[in-house]
Design a protein around this nucleic acid. Structure first.
Lengths: 233, 233
DNA sequence: TTTCATTGTGTGAATTTTACATAATAAAAA
DNA sequence: TTTTTATTATGTAAAATTCACACAATGAAA
């Protein structure tokens, strides 16, 4: 076999555009939400789509995803993960476009969407009917990814305020997993994990007995080498 | 905001080549192996690389991965999964090439490599020093993926002959996970899972007391809706 | 026939999961 | 002010699972 020159070889390869699509989950009003934008394509007029953009010639794809997130929401320091690549040849009406889905979790209260035109909107995940492109499929895949993720890693904290009650934490888990959990066992689980710091503060402005407020123990998280005992319910 | 025509928009997008790289794991001689091919690039002369190829203009990426596998090994009906996309802008010396890694598990004994030139070779995973491109990184990622996968799904059977002993099965787990397991607890685990069918046959040509042979209970697997209790050791 | 390595099975302690009940507290209602 | 009500907060026992470990049975090799 003869050896080849890399540049010569690559020059002959078929080329296609690559995009990133960000599935940005938030949590509010006891519901899992996702940040959507109205499609700017004729074909999908009025339909909702994920936040995406094309990847630039020399841009690392992860970087493109962070860029999209920054440009759309102003957020920079948040959790972001590659989930999966979607490549159906006709998934984009304008021609072949391969897209790479990223997931991110953010605290809605922290981000009063800087771009507050009505093109951008937090949607309840459970009530989305139709979406542009194959974005519904991507969203479902990312939701499943999140369900798995949240049971193996304490990523849920990224969706909550800095201070939160155990009830809020449990509501989050129930919303993401779509199941009800036993309150006592849930609290016990987190108690034994030692991941919560009791702030000795109470909830305020709640229409019932206030619960204690906690914050996430980041130090413990970092020290633990990220090997998590799964969170099984 | 004005609505756009999809084709017009996509025509302006930067384009780049996409490849697939297949990390094909096999198991033999109590070692986890991976199928590698000698790089045909000048720059990587003599170095080993994953089995890959460029994705065609209208080809679904999954299809490209299956095609590569078929072309290189002649196998068609096997387990194949997308793992992750690698996109470092200079990961390919010939220019920007994004690659999508796929993992597959196959039974070495079933496939006396049709292409038996010495460009293709089963390597022990634990003894690979250097590889072309970023393929070492891809391999490590896929190995970690496999370690996780095999603890959640009974995919290990794809790496074994149709008939196998419990010792062979345990050797496989130990090789993939890189740890030793307790024989009694291992056997008990699989006994309670009810995934093995006792064939009432014994190993032959082994230099010690022969063990019973089992086969994988595919019916049970299919009926179970693929919701697996994790295999924890 | 003896040795030896390996298969095959069991058992009890420790840990984790699961199911469930009651007391304490603060808001809301009477 | 008192009572009601919803919610927080905590405990406990049974069941299931994990973990650590020991011994008998078998067949090959010596």
């Amino acid at each position: 076999m003869s050896l080849k020159n890399g540049a010569t070889l690559v020059a002959q390869y078929p080329k296609m555009p690559i995009t990133v699509d960000c599935v940005i989950f938030g949590f509010d009003d006891n519901e899992l939400k996702v940040l959507l934008i109205r499609s700017d394509l004729e074909k999908y007029q009025g339909m909702w789509s994920l936040l995406g953009d094309v990847v630039q010639e020399t841009e690392e794809i992860d970087a493109a995803a962070y860029r999209v997130l920054d440009q759309r929401t102003g957020m920079t320091d948040i959790y972001l993960d590659q989930v999966r690549t979607f490549s159906r040849p006709n998934r984009h009406p304008g021609g072949r476009v391969v897209t790479i889905a990223y997931c991110s979790l953010l605290n809605i209260k922290h981000h009063s969407l800087k771009i507050t035109d009505n093109e951008l909107h937090w949607h309840s995940v459970s009530s989305i009917a139709e979406m542009a492109f194959d974005h519904k499929e991507i969203l479902i895949t990312c939701h499943e990814w999140l369900q798995k993720m949240i049971q193996e890693n304490p990523v849920g904290f990224n969706l909550l305020p800095d201070k939160f009650s155990l009830r809020e934490l449990q509501n989050l888990y129930e919303a993401i997993l779509g199941i009800e959990l036993d309150r006592r066992n849930f609290r016990k689980k987190f108690a034994t994990m030692n991941l919560l710091i009791d702030l000795d503060e109470m909830e305020e402005d709640v229409p019932h007995r206030p619960g204690k407020l906690y914050k996430f123990n980041f130090e413990k998280y970092n020290k633990s080498n990220r090997k998590w005992v799964g969170i099984d319910f």
